[in-house]
Lab assay of single mutants.
Amino acid sequence: TEEFVRLWREAVRHNQTLHWNGTDFIPGDEWAEEFARREEEKL
């Protein structure tokens, strides 16, 4: 979602874990980066 992408970019900028829907998205984590890339492509 647009909100997820916005929060993810913020988390990456501050190198912080994003807690989203009970899942931890960690900047630099391969799975999280791939998920975020797919979400961005949907926008």
Rank of each mutant, 00 (worst) to 15 (best):
T17L: 09
L7E: 04
E33A: 07
E30N: 10
E39F: 14
H19N: 11
Q16S: 10
T23S: 10
R37M: 08
R9P: 01
T23K: 15
T1V: 13
T23P: 01
L7W: 04
E3F: 07
L43P: 03
L43I: 09
E3T: 12
A11G: 00
R6F: 11
N15D: 06
V12D: 01
E41P: 02
F35N: 01
H19T: 13
E3W: 10
E41V: 11
A32L: 03
V5T: 07
L43C: 14
F4V: 00
G22R: 04
E33V: 08
E39K: 09
E10D: 11
G28M: 03
Q16Y: 14
V12L: 09
R37S: 07
V12H: 05
P27H: 02
E39Q: 15
G28Y: 02
V12T: 06
R13Q: 13
F25Y: 14
E40G: 07
N21A: 12
I26S: 10
T17A: 12
R9I: 08
F4Y: 03
R6A: 07
F35I: 06
T17V: 15
R13Y: 12
L18Q: 01
F25D: 01
E41L: 14
E3S: 09
D29Q: 09
E33S: 05
D24A: 12
E10A: 07
F25E: 01
H19Q: 09
R38G: 08
E33Q: 09
D24I: 14
A36N: 02
D24H: 07
T23Y: 15
R6I: 08
D29C: 13
E39S: 13
A32I: 03
A36M: 08
G28F: 03
I26D: 07
W8C: 06
K42I: 07
E34V: 06
W31T: 06
G28L: 03
R13S: 11
T1A: 14
A36I: 06
D24Q: 10
E34C: 15
Q16M: 14
R6E: 07
T17Q: 05
W20Y: 11
L7M: 09
W31M: 08
N21H: 13
R38Q: 11
R38H: 10
R9S: 05
P27W: 02
F35R: 04
N21S: 08
V5Q: 04
T23G: 06
W8S: 01
D29I: 07
V5E: 03
E10I: 10
R13K: 15
E41D: 10
H19I: 08
R37V: 04
R13N: 09
E39H: 10
E30V: 13
E39P: 02
F35S: 01
A36H: 02
N15M: 10
L7S: 06
R9A: 10
L43Y: 09
N15F: 08
V12K: 14
G22I: 04
H14E: 11
R38F: 07
E2D: 11
E39V: 15
D29S: 09
E34M: 12
A32R: 02
W20L: 05
L18G: 01
E2V: 13
A36Q: 01
D24L: 14
T17Y: 05
R13T: 11
I26W: 06
E30H: 12
H14V: 12
H19G: 03
R6Y: 11
K42Y: 07
I26Q: 12
L7R: 13
R38M: 11
L43T: 06
R6C: 15
A11Q: 02
L18M: 08
Q16N: 09
N15A: 09
A36P: 00
E10T: 05
E30Q: 13
D29A: 07
E33P: 00
G22P: 00
G22W: 04
D24K: 10
L18S: 00
H19C: 13
Q16L: 14
R9F: 09
E30Y: 11
L18Y: 02
T1H: 11
L43S: 06
W20P: 00
R6Q: 07
R9M: 09
H19A: 06
R37T: 05
T23E: 10
N15Q: 12
F4L: 02
F4P: 00
F25K: 02
A32S: 15
H14N: 15
H14K: 15
E41F: 12
D29L: 06
F25L: 10
R13W: 11
H19S: 12
R37A: 10
T23R: 15
A32D: 01
V5I: 15
D24T: 12
E2W: 14
R9W: 13
R37D: 02
D24V: 13
F4H: 00
H14S: 14
R38P: 03
A11L: 03
L18F: 09
R38E: 05
T23N: 12
W8V: 02
W8G: 01
D24S: 10
E40F: 14
F4R: 00
W31F: 10
A11C: 15
P27V: 04
F25N: 01
I26M: 12
F4W: 09
T17P: 13
N15I: 04
R6S: 05
R6M: 09
N21I: 05
G28V: 01
G28I: 02
R13I: 13
R38S: 10
W31C: 13
N21D: 09
F25C: 06
E40N: 08
P27S: 02
A36V: 10
A32T: 03
E33F: 05
P27C: 10
V5D: 03
R6P: 03
E39M: 15
Q16W: 13
E2I: 13
R38N: 09
T1C: 15
T23W: 14
H14F: 14
Q16T: 14
E10R: 07
N21M: 15
A11R: 02
E34D: 12
G22N: 10
E40C: 14
H14T: 15
E2G: 11
Q16K: 14
E10Q: 09
E3P: 02
E34R: 10
Q16I: 14
W31S: 06
L7V: 02
T17M: 10
E30W: 12
G28T: 04
H14M: 15
E34G: 09
L7G: 03
F4S: 00
N15H: 10
D29F: 04
F4D: 01
E34Q: 13
